[in-house]
């Protein structure tokens, strides 16, 4: 019974966090004129959680993030859920690399996920529009976004890691008390 409660609480926290990332990305970042390209905050949250807690958590976050994106855009419903879900799943496969607070592996994951995400979107556009200026898009959309996302990852990953460790500790203490 306690486990189920904990699970629900956890899922609620994931949802609120993803929602916060979504609101930051859609309501706050457009106001910051110094971002030439906006960092993909939802992707950061998804792959970070996948990496820290494993595939299942990554997928849950991915489904939430994708759902919000799908609701926001008027593209075929489910496309973003699929992209983010896969991103969370694959990041979770590298959970065993999480040994210390090193930022190197998350950054590698960030690059891989960004490339995967943008390739998927580009593929969809190619399918939907029949044309895509691939070289131009890579230079002017993908690379700037990648740069800013990497920049934010350095900051956001640490914050996510530490908040979650604290949450885990609180849960552990409570668990012991109950036991």
């Amino acid at each position: 019974m306690y486990g189920f409660k904990k699970l629900i609480k956890r899922i609620a926290i994931y949802f609120l966090l993803v929602l916060a990332a979504f609101l930051l990305q859609t309501c706050v970042f457009p106001l910051l004129k110094f971002f030439y390209a906006a960092p993909n905050l939802l992707l950061i949250v998804t792959f970070s959680y996948g990496f820290i807690y494993g595939s299942l958590t990554g997928m849950i976050c991915g489904i939430f993030a994708g759902f919000l994106m799908d609701v926001f855009y008027y593209e075929p419903f489910g496309m973003f859920i699929l992209i983010f879900c896969y991103s969370g799943f694959f990041s979770g496969l590298f959970q065993n690399q999480l040994k210390n607070d090193s930022i190197v592996f998350p950054l590698i994951l960030c690059v891989l996920n960004e490339l995967f995400y943008n390739a998927a979107v580009m593929f969809y556009r190619l399918f939907n529009l029949g044309h895509a200026d691939v070289a131009y898009s890579i230079k002017n959309v993908v690379l700037p976004e990648l740069f800013f996302t990497l920049l934010i990852t350095i900051l956001a990953y640490r914050i996510l890691l530490h908040t979650n460790r604290k949450l885990d500790k609180i849960d552990d203490v409570r668990g012991q008390n109950v036991a």
């Binding site: 859609t26 906006a38 976004e145």
Partner: peptide, 13 residues
């Protein structure tokens, strides 16, 4: 009230 700052889709709410 909202606009995705990514460049792929030019959509706002």
């Amino acid at each position: 009230i909202a606009r995705d700052s990514q460049k792929w889709f030019q959509v706002f709410r």
